[in-house]
Design a protein around this nucleic acid. Structure first.
Lengths: 258, 258
DNA sequence: AACAAACCGAGAGCACCGCTCTTGACAGTT
DNA sequence: AACTGTCAAGAGCGGTGCTCTCGGTTTGTT
C-alpha cells in the first residue's frame, strides 16, 4: 500500500513536472509568437507529439488560462514581496515599492505582461479562475488606501483640502485636491457606483478617496503599458525609471499617501 | 489622349476601390480575429483567390500597416473635429471634447483601438509611415498646452502654486500642485529629458507643465484602454462615461486647463 | 492598327498550424 | 491472468501565409 502510494506519487510528480515544463516552453514561445502560440511547437520542443500535450491541457485555451493565472500570480507575488519589505506605517514607501515591483516584473516579462494587460485575445474568454490571481495587485492597492484611511493620514475628501483653512498646507496635502466640489461636482451615477464599490471592497474608504485610488491605479498601469507597448519611443528614452517614479509620487500625493 | 487618361483613371479607380474594399473587409475581420486576421478569409469574402490579394498588398504586414495608418488617421480626425467645434479660448472645453472624441471613437471601434493602442503584434515592426498619423492626437494635446502657456492661463510650474501666497486659491489652481519641488525634487535625468522634449515639440512650454501634460495624456489613454480591455468589469459598470469625464477634469485641473 | 509591356486573377503547391480521432503500449487493480 | 485507465504516437482534416507559374486583359508606345 505504501509502495502503491509512492508509485502513484512518482507518477503524479512526473506529471507535474511535465506540466510545468510545458508551461515554461509555452511562456518562452509567448515572447516570440504572442498569444497565438503554437501547441505543436511546444510539443516539438519538448520532444513529444502534439497530441501528447492534450493529455496535460485539454485545449489550447486551457494552456493559455494556466499561463495567465501563473502570470497574474507572479506579478502579484512580485508586488506583494516588494511592498512587504517596507515599514507598515510608511504608506508612500509601500506604494512606491509596489509600483516599482509591478514595473520591474513587467519589464522583465514583457510578453507575459502583454498577455494579461494587453489586448484581449480574440476568441478567448477568461474563466472565473483567473479573477482571484488577477485581483492580487488591486487588493494590495486597496489595502494600502484602507490602511491610510484607518490611520487617518489620507487627506479629507471634502473640497479645499487644507488650503481653505488659511494655514500653509503640508507637502502632501497641497499636492492634488479633489476636483469633486472644487472643480465640478461628481456626477450622480458615478458617486452611486463608487459608493457601491466601496461598500464591496473597502467599506471604510470614502467615495472620493476611492476615486483617487482608482485614478492612481489606472495611472500606474497606464505608464507601464505605455512604456512596454512602445509609446515612449522618441519621447522618454533615458529616464523612464525616473519618470515612472515621478508618476508614482504625483499619484501618491493626489491620493494622500505619505 | 483624353480617352487615355480616362481609361487610366478608370483602372486606377477600380484598383483604389478594390484596395479600400480589401481594407474594409480586413477591418471587419479585425473585430473577430484580432491582429492575426486571415488573408485567405479576406480573399474568400471578396470572391477572389488568396494570392490575388497580394497584387494589392505585397504582404500581410503591409495590409496591417495600411489598416494601422487608417485607424490612426480616423482617431486623429475624430479628436480634431470634436476639438475644433469648441471656442479656442475654452481650453478645458477643448480638452474635454478631444478626450471624449477619442473615447467615443475607441468605443465605436474597439478592435481598431486594440490594433493601434493594444499589445504590439509579435512579428510586426511598425514602419516610419505610421508615426505621422499616430502623432495627430498627441499633437492636439501639445497644441492645447502650448495655447494655454501662450495665453498665460496655465498655472505657474513652481512649487506652492498659489497657496503660498496666502490668498484663497481659485478652483483651478488648487486642483493639483506639482510634486516636483513640493513633494520631492524631480530627478536630474528626467528634467533633462523633459527639457529636450520641450525644445523639440513645444519650446515655450516649461518642463513641469510638459510633465503634467504627459501625465494627463497617459491617464486619458489609460482609462480608455482599461475600459476597452475589460479591466472595469465588476468595478465600474454603469457610470463609465461619467468616470471618464471625471478623470478628464481631474487631469485638466492638474495641468491647469480651465 | 499592331505590338510589347505591364497588370491581373487564378490555380497549384509548400510548409506550417490547431485540433480530432484512433491505435497500441504500459501500469495498477482485481 | 484479465480488466481498467492513462499515456504517447500516428493519421488526417481544414486552415494559414506565401511563392510560383500560367493564361488573359489592359495599357502605352510604335
Amino acid at each position: 500500500m505504501l509502495s502503491d502510494m509512492t508509485a502513484k506519487n512518482i507518477r503524479a510528480r512526473v506529471r507535474d513536472e511535465l506540466t510545468s515544463e510545458i508551461k515554461a516552453i509555452a511562456r518562452r514561445q509567448l515572447a516570440t509568437e504572442g498569444a497565438n502560440l503554437s501547441l505543436r511547437a511546444v510539443a516539438r520542443e519538448l520532444g513529444m507529439v502534439s497530441s501528447a500535450v492534450y493529455r496535460y491541457f485539454p485545449s489550447r485555451d486551457d494552456l493559455l488560462t494556466a499561463l495567465i493565472i501563473d502570470c497574474y500570480d507572479e506579478l502579484g507575488a512580485a508586488a506583494e514581496s516588494a511592498e512587504a519589505a517596507v515599514d507598515r506605517a510608511d504608506l508612500l514607501g509601500r506604494w512606491l515599492a509596489a509600483g516599482h515591483g509591478i514595473r520591474d516584473w513587467a519589464l522583465a516579462n514583457p510578453a507575459e505582461y502583454a498577455l494579461i494587460y494587453g489586448s484581449p485575445v480574440p476568441g478567448y474568454k477568461a474563466p472565473e479562475t483567473t479573477v482571484g490571481p488577477a485581483a492580487r495587485t488591486t487588493n494590495l492597492i486597496t489595502a494600502l488606501i484602507a490602511d491610510g484611511v484607518a490611520a487617518g493620514t489620507l487627506a479629507a475628501p471634502s473640497a479645499g483640502a487644507g488650503s481653505t483653512t488659511g494655514s500653509r498646507p503640508g507637502p502632501g496635502s497641497e499636492a492634488l485636491a479633489d476636483p469633486a466640489g472644487a472643480v465640478s461636482p461628481m456626477a450622480a451615477d458615478l458617486a452611486a457606483e463608487l459608493d457601491r464599490i466601496a461598500a464591496l471592497i473597502a467599506p471604510a474608504v470614502p467615495r472620493e478617496v476611492l476615486a483617487r485610488g482608482i485614478t492612481a491605479w489606472i495611472q500606474l498601469f497606464g505608464v507601464v503599458t505605455f512604456e512596454l507597448f512602445g509609446r515612449f519611443q522618441n519621447l522618454i528614452e533615458d529616464s523612464r525609471r525616473s519618470f515612472f517614479d515621478h508618476q508614482l509620487r504625483v499619484m501618491a500625493a493626489y491620493v494622500g499617501l505619505r
